[in-house]
């Protein structure tokens, strides 16, 4: 927890975050993908824990946020499948217009990747919080 580590980690946090978002959102044109991006978001918690205190990490991403995020990711994934079902396609079928090689026009893939990325990131954060011995507020034994 020295000053050097704190300053460096404060500096590289936005870069790691941007890299994770880049991995999630451009998984269809370049190597990467939702899983790698999500886990990279979870790694930020370890960085904050190592550099500052656990309470600092918890103030930035609370347990409640992580729980909400993972439920949101799963529901988003299922919603995308159900919308395709309502439009008369198969479950989880690609129903949006798609252009090969376009940065954003790859149909529903980018939305599914976003859902999976949020879910995996929040799961990783929660794994660390549970291993550190923290529980969300309001959860009693």
């Amino acid at each position: 927890m020295s000053l050097i580590i704190q300053t460096v980690s404060r500096g590289i946090t936005p870069f790691i975050f941007v890299y994770a978002i880049y991995l999630i959102l451009t998984g269809h044109t370049s190597p990467g993908g939702a899983f790698a991006g999500g886990v990279a978001i979870g790694l930020l918690i370890v960085l904050w824990y190592a550099a500052f205190k656990l309470s600092t990490a918890e103030r930035r991403v609370s347990c409640f946020t992580a729980h909400a995020g993972r439920i949101l990711g799963l529901l988003g994934f299922l919603t995308m499948g159900t919308i395709a079902l309502l439009l008369g396609k198969g479950f989880l079928e690609n129903f949006l217009p798609k252009v090969a090689g376009h940065l954003t026009m790859s149909g529903v893939i980018i939305l599914l990747a976003l859902g999976v990325g949020i879910l995996v990131g929040c799961e990783t954060v929660l794994i660390f919080y549970y291993l550190f011995g923290r529980r969300p507020k309001g959860e009693r034994r």
Partner: peptide, 14 residues
Amino acid sequence: NTGSQNLVTAVLLD
């Protein structure tokens, strides 16, 4: 079929 150049992502998410 999928509009995704990365075939791994195409298989994984489509």
